[in-house]
Write a protein that binds this DNA or RNA. Structure first.
Length: 849
RNA sequence: GCGCCCGUGGCGGAAUGGUAGACGCUACGGACUUAAAAUCCGUUGGCCGCAAGGCCGUGGGGGUUCGAGUCCCCCCGGGCGCACCA
């Protein structure tokens, strides 16, 4: 009788062995090809969630597999440790953000360790550590000196109660997400990184990202949003001056019926000075947040400035100048000409303010007509196509010396300023005498966050700290004030993958040697929610570092995989209150509350979220079923790019499988006692069958892992184990040898998925070296070729029989055997054979009529 | 609105244009047990048939092909992304 598998003890045991033997610690080893496997670093909330487990299981399978096939694999882990949640916790519970963060890191690390990940923990980094942000501050200053970091006034979402700037995501229905106060649009001095300087390069680089999902590449392209058009000036006729506009449709200029400026356009105030209703209009525009959703929902409203401009192509024609809320100051020139006949927004605006609509593109269909066509009502442009008319119009604007063809981007510079404490301080000081901005010298970095802060008042604790910000100018020794803005936390995550390469270097963020060896990341794995911002910022950051003299490739991530979400059913009690899955018991299709047996409604299956309480704590799962079961279930149930539905029965199935394999190996291993390790010269038919299945599985599993088809890889492994487990008696020594080869291979193939079980069984089979250090089994190609094959036989495309024949049989032989099959003959009764199609190894199709 | 992805048993999902439903979950029947759990054996797309076997079947409709879940066109349903970007 076999022993039970002691999951917890066994998993702990091997975790300790791997740690003690530094199995996954690596250095730059030029004798081996390198493979940099990277999982997106977690925010240390204190608890891992199932999404983390999925992410790190996937990266672990890749890391362990790549190591087995001979790569020097770097698989690091760290903590995205700065940011708002620590400050919220500090405000709610009176803890210090640093204490809260480091305590969370400790808890979460213990949880990750219990997953048995093949991580080089010696490279662990926390972005809140001064030795991390020290190098980041140096990079900021290098960007500053190169003109890639600059300060300008810009519009922000201002929460008047919290006294801080809110990100767009923190504005809900025009109100601050915490305070509930209406958000104002305010102008503030903010720090920016000049990502727009790299717009073209970032766009072109997308073409080289062959191992990125198409979806993500398209999203980045859209985000960069390159457009070609014309920029030109309208002369004001009612006062002196000009209005610059940008358009992608210079061909429709003869259809222009108004000019509109953004409400916050610099000329708005001067044009409207003293006009009744102007202040109200501006207030109305400001009432809406800066979020794109908020702007979209707003009705189009305008304000007639009373001023007019001259049409550049039509002598004597004047167009009214409006302010309009749908014009964005941040795009183009913040001003447009409106052509209501051929633009939906202009059409809506013109309808409301009863402005003329002049059709200049011929075509069927009602106005607004936004497709290309042939020009009409446009003097010298008449008869031209849209494209030709664009070129002609731009030429004319250039010859009149009032404008030119131009390329614009939707991408805006990256605002990195946050009026927050728990972020990386921007290492600059403002000299009081003249307001000069002076970099903090390298030898004074890092500019550390002060520890003694309080949250008694709203706003930025750095700004009201009694001493921290008061300093002296490093150049003159005069009084100066530190910059109190800290960096957006996307700043830390834009280069953490470089810090992993050389994490304890005190002189520089990372060495050239390390970067040249390890970069780029070969396989990056994470959630699709970072498809644009994090990934685009990182791509920009490496280029900016490159231009500051660092040894980094243009593209940091050669391969990217984005995993799906983890979902779970939702439960509600009779009062409609959400219940945790642990509060509910399910029998068949009926669910009841454990506490009082009352009925429970099973709701939709959605992304796990705290608000709907449909969450599973991975630690509970690991404690109950073990890390291997959790890993196996996550890998086997769905393709990794799709959503995964977490089910109790699924995790139990994985747990059963692990116990079953353990039992069978323990029960079978006596068979292998004392047998020779020498490969038999001849194999019996039975042995040959086992070996074919074994080697076919090695081949398929490797291909599946390479293609990220982890669910299929698991299915193949289960097929092999089903076959091995069904072998009840051994007929000869060659079969015994083949069976041992089968079991050993099974264990090796299982290792990336369920490493603890595999390591345990490997040692049970008498191996004294670690499976983690054992190379992947080698396929014998001769065993991938079967000696007999099964062919489908169709009559007029319908399956009528299957025939088995020798692999060496030729087409005519296959045809002969197919036509002599009884069932095929029956189907052909009364018909004459017209043609026989034989696809070797696949099918015989008899066409008859 | 634009772009992309997806629709296959009760469920998750497999199928280089070539035997649809691999692998698993659930459910049901049986063995073992005083009993239960665990485990093991079997059945599990629908319909007809004692069986051999047959018919139908991959959201719906058309098409290409010897052959379509897979390719093309139209429609329906679901998801994701983008969006006053001039």
């Amino acid at each position: 009788m076999s022993e039970r598998y002691h999951i917890k003890e066994t998993e702990k045991k091997w975790q300790k062995v791997w740690q003690d033997r530094k199995s996954f610690e690596v250095t730059e080893d030029t004798t081996k090809p390198k493979c940099y496997v990277l999982a997106m670093l977690p925010y240390p909330s204190g608890r891992i969630h199932v999404g983390h487990v999925r992410n790190y299981t996937l990266s672990d399978v890749v890391a362990r597999y790549k190591k087995a096939i001979g790569f020097n694999v770097l698989n690091p882990m760290g903590w995205d440790a700065l940011g708002l949640p620590a400050e919220n916790a500090a405000m709610e519970r009176g803890t210090h953000p640093a204490d809260w963060t480091y305590a969370n890191i400790k808890d979460m690390k213990a949880q990750l360790l219990s997953m048995g990940l093949a991580i080089d923990w010696s490279r662990e980094v926390a972005t809140c550590h001064p030795q991390y942000y020290k190098h980041e501050q140096k990079m900021f200053l290098e960007f500053y000196k190169k003109g890639l970091a600059y300060r300008k006034e810009s519009m922000v979402n201002w929460d008047p109660v919290e006294n801080t700037v809110l990100a767009n995501e923190q504005v809900v229905d025009g109100k601050g997400w915490r305070s509930g106060a209406p958000v104002e649009r305010r102008k503030l001095y903010q720090w920016f990184l000049k990502i727009t300087a790299y717009a073209d390069e970032l766009l072109a680089g997308i073409q080289t990202l062959e191992r990125w999902p198409e979806k993500v590449r398209v999203m980045q392209e859209n985000w960069i949003g390159k457009s070609q058009g014309a920029q030109f000036n309208f002369d004001l006729t009612t006062t002196s001056g000009q209005i610059a506009v940008y358009t992608t449709r210079p061909d429709t200029l003869f259809g222009a019926s108004f000019v509109a400026l953004a409400a916050d356009h610099p000329m708005a105030k001067t044009l409207c000075a003293g006009k009744a209703g102007f202040d109200d209009f501006i207030k109305q525009c400001q009432a809406n947040g800066t979020s794109e959703a908020a702007i979209e929902q707003a009705e189009k409203i305008g304000f007639d400035t009373g001023h007019k401009v001259a049409h550049p192509f039509i002598a004597g024609k004047e167009l009214p100048v409006y302010l309009a809320n749908f014009i964005l100051m941040d795009y183009g020139t913040g001003a447009i000409f409106g052509c209501p006949a051929h633009d939906e927004r202009d059409f809506a605006f013109a309808t409301k303010y009863q402005l003329p609509m002049i059709r200049v593109i011929d075509g069927a269909g009602d106005l607004p007509f936004t497709e290309d066509g042939t020009l009409i009502n446009s003097e010298w442009l008449n008869g031209l196509t849209t494209d030709a008319a664009k070129t002609a119009a731009i030429q004319k604007l250039e010859s009149l010396k009032i404008g030119q063809g131009i390329t614009k981007y939707r991408l805006r510079d990256w605002g990195v300023s946050r009026q927050r404490y728990w972020g990386c301080p921007i290492p600059l000081v403002h000299r009081i005498r003249d307001g000069a901005i002076i970099p903090v010298p390298d030898d004074q970095l890092p500019v550390e966050l002060p520890h003694d802060i309080n949250y008694d008042l709203p706003g930025n604790p750095l700004d009201r700290h009694p001493t921290w910000k008061y300093t002296t100018c490093p150049e003159t020794g005069e009084p100066a004030i530190r910059e109190t803005d800290t960096c957006d936390t996307f700043f830390e995550s834009s280069w953490y993958f470089l810090r992993y390469l050389d994490p304890r270097n005190t002189q520089t963020g990372f060495s050239s040697t390390a970067s040249k060896y390890w970069m780029p990341v070969d396989q990056y794995i994470g959630g699709v929610e970072h498809a644009v911002l994090h990934l685009l910022y990182s791509r920009f950051f490496t280029r900016a570092l490159r231009d500051c003299g660092y040894d980094v490739p243009d593209e940091p991530f050669a391969g990217l995989f984005t995993q799906g979400m983890v979902t779970h059913a939702t439960f509600q009690d009779t009062d409609g209150k959400w219940l945790y899955p642990t509060e509910v018991t399910i029998e068949g299709s009926r669910a009841t509350k454990i506490s009082d047996g009352s009925p429970v409604t099973i709701g939709s299956i959605t992304k796990m979220s705290k608000s709907k309480k449909n969450t599973i704590d991975p630690q509970d799962i690991i404690d109950t079923y073990g890390a291997d079961a959790a890993r196996l279930f996550i890998l086997s149930d769905s393709p990794p790019e799709r959503d995964l539905e977490w089910t109790e029965s699924g995790i139990e199935g994985a747990w059963r499988y692990i116990n079953k394999i353990y039992r069978h190996v323990i029960d079978t291993k006596e068979l292998f006692q004392g047998m020779s390790s020498e490969k038999p010269a001849n194999f019996s038919a039975g042995a040959q069958n086992i070996r074919r299945a074994t080697h076919k599985t090695i081949d398929l599993v490797a291909k599946d892992i390479d293609a990220f088809h982890m669910n299929k890889a698991v299915a193949r492994i289960r097929e092999l184990s089903n076959l091995l487990v069904d072998i009840k008696d051994i007929k000869d020594d060659s079969e015994r040898w083949a069976l041992r080869e089968g079991y050993e291979t099974l264990i090796q193939l299982l290792a990336p998925m369920v490493p603890h079980l595999a390591e345990e069984l490997w040692s049970e089979l008498g191996h004294t070296t670690l499976l983690a250090d054992t190379p992947w089994p080698v396929v014998d190609p001769a065993l991938l070729v079967a000696d007999t094959i099964t062919l489908a036989v169709q009559v007029n495309g319908k399956l009528r029989a299957t025939i088995t024949l020798s692999a060496t049989a030729d087409k005519s032989e296959a045809e002969k055997i197919a036509l002599s099959d009884d069932n095929v003959k029956k189907s052909l009764e009364g018909l004459s054979v017209k043609k026989v199609i034989v696809v070797p190894g696949r099918v015989v199709n008899v066409v008859a009529g």
